[in-house]
């Protein structure tokens, strides 16, 4: 299973990637929404099952990325999880309305991240409790 980690912080990208790799994922990384769209285009038919999406990033923010993904039929199968410091109620509603499936607020614990994967049906069986 492949996951795409989108965050402008290299530290955050490597932290999320480490957790995903430990769960058995192969990860791709992108520093903003535009880069992520390019990575997706290069991936072709091998669409990642999951993207973790930061909100505030240069060039293209996470919300715009989610909206763009939702216009592409061939990417419908991908689950989108916002992972962001944006914690206001209205922002969560906006992200979900745009097409995000889950929303995780930073900072978070590894367990909270696993819980979200489980809710999306993306926690490998052996890692589930």
């Amino acid at each position: 299973m492949r996951a795409l980690v989108i965050d402008d912080s290299r530290t955050m990208r490597s932290l999320l990637s480490r957790q995903l790799v430990a769960l058995g994922y192969e990860t791709l990384q992108a520093g903003n929404g535009q880069e992520a769209l390019e990575v997706m285009d290069q991936a072709g038919a091998d669409v990642p099952v999951l993207a973790t999406v930061d909100w505030n990033m240069p060039v293209m923010d996470g919300l715009t990325f989610v909206q763009r993904v939702r216009t592409r039929q061939e990417w419908r199968s991908m689950s989108l999880m916002m992972v962001t410091t944006e914690a206001e109620y209205d922002q969560i509603v906006r992200a979900l309305a745009a097409g995000a499936h889950e929303y995780l607020i930073k900072p978070f614990t590894p367990e909270a991240f696993s819980d979200k994967l489980q809710l999306l049906g993306l926690l490998p069986e052996r890692a589930a409790q």
């Binding site: 914690a87 206001e88 109620y89 969560i92 509603v93 979900l96 995000a100 499936h101 889950e102 929303y103 995780l104 607020i105 978070f108 614990t109 367990e111 909270a112 819980d115 979200k116 489980q118 809710l119």
Partner: peptide
């Protein structure tokens, strides 16, 4: 942190307020 433990985001915005 507590709300992050396994509550689906759509249910959170439906049944909780900040």
């Amino acid at each position: 942190l507590e709300i992050g433990r396994g509550l689906p985001a759509p249910m959170m915005v439906k049944h909780f307020r900040r």
